[in-house]
């Protein structure tokens, strides 16, 4: 037995395993802020990434443009067809917006869950081991980014801010497999049906919209957007369209497979959205508690 303790390497290994477990536990718990050494490391590397990213992507972008040129003719024809639709849609939206404004004024309601102010950012890195789908963007707390803010591309929602550091932030994509990665969503239609985006089917490349009441009828192809009741996200950021609906294991809930509108792979420029209506913390807490109760 004493010989066992004299083996220096073995002791070193055991000690490092203990430190490993402690560190993993430390970083997995819910934390408001990352520790300053981590902040310092990420920001320094972020600076270097920033330097490298610009030239490399512009070269790659040039070749991509060349490939895109081949499809220009087809695309142009399709877009022209769409243009007529667009004009009518635009007048409609204008009318609705005005009406909405007037009605709001009559009601005296100022807060709007839909309103947000965007922070423009560029993607400077992505996690190479693809277990955690995390991208790094070049904006941080100094530019107003905060933890849990929504992140969108021009097409729709892609994820939320996981951690914000002074000059860079990490964004967890919707496709990331993390039990904590949940977003309250709504299926738009005649009647609004609420659910929670939770999980991603890697094989089919579809998001899972869970916890829809079993008696709701969902039309395939209806639009899914953020509901704004989760506390941090603004309302109606596009998420995707319903592709398939199945009943859960015990028949109490339904799960919808949602085809995301945004591309989780080819991301270059993103916007971090800050909701203008402040969230009520107590309301927030009770909502997350409710959610917690539902999980088995």
């Amino acid at each position: 037995m004493p010989q066992f303790f004299l083996n220096k390497r073995l002791i070193l290994l055991l000690v490092s395993i203990i430190i490993l477990v402690a560190l993993i536990g430390f970083s997995l718990r819910e934390r408001e802020k990352v520790s300053w050494p981590e902040q310092f490391l990420s920001d320094t590397i972020g600076f270097v990434q920033n330097v490298f990213h610009k030239p490399v992507t512009s070269v790659a972008g040039f070749f991509e443009n060349l490939i895109d040129l081949q499809h220009t003719y087809d695309e142009n024809r399709k877009l022209k067809e769409r243009l007529d639709e667009y004009v009518t849609l635009k007048t409609q939206v204008q009318g609705l917006e005005n009406e909405n404004k007037e009605l709001r004024e009559i009601l005296g309601k100022k807060d709007d869950l839909r309103e947000y102010s965007p922070i423009q950012a560029t993607v400077i890195g992505r996690n190479p081991d693809r277990w955690h789908e995390i991208i790094t963007i070049n904006r941080g707390t100094n530019q107003g980014v905060k933890k849990n803010m929504g992140v969108i591309t021009s097409r729709g929602l892609i994820g939320k801010v996981k951690n914000a550091k002074p000059f860079t932030s990490t964004v967890q994509l919707l496709s990331s497999k993390d039990p904590k990665n949940r977003i309250s969503a709504v299926i738009q239609g005649q009647k609004e049906i609420y659910g929670v985006i939770e999980g991603y089917d890697q094989k089919r490349k579809l998001l899972l919209l869970k916890r829809i009441p079993y008696n709701e009828k969902i039309k395939i192809g209806s639009e899914v957007a953020t509901s704004g009741i989760g506390g941090v996200f603004p309302e109606s950021l596009a998420i995707g369209t319903v592709e398939e609906v199945i009943t859960d294991q015990y028949g109490l809930n339904q799960t919808a497979y949602v085809k995301p509108v945004a591309d989780f792979y080819d991301i270059d420029n993103v916007m971090v959205v800050e909701r203008l209506t402040p969230s009520v913390d107590e309301m927030d807490e009770s909502f997350s508690n409710q959610e917690g109760d539902e999980t088995p």
Binding site: I17, L23, I24, L41, I45, H132, I134
Partner: peptide, 17 residues
């Protein structure tokens, strides 16, 4: 490994070990 954990995965310890 430490850099990898801090910058990419944000779970300290795995690659560092």
């Amino acid at each position: 490994g430490l850099l990898f954990d801090a910058v990419y995965t944000e779970i300290l310890g795995i690659y560092m070990f």
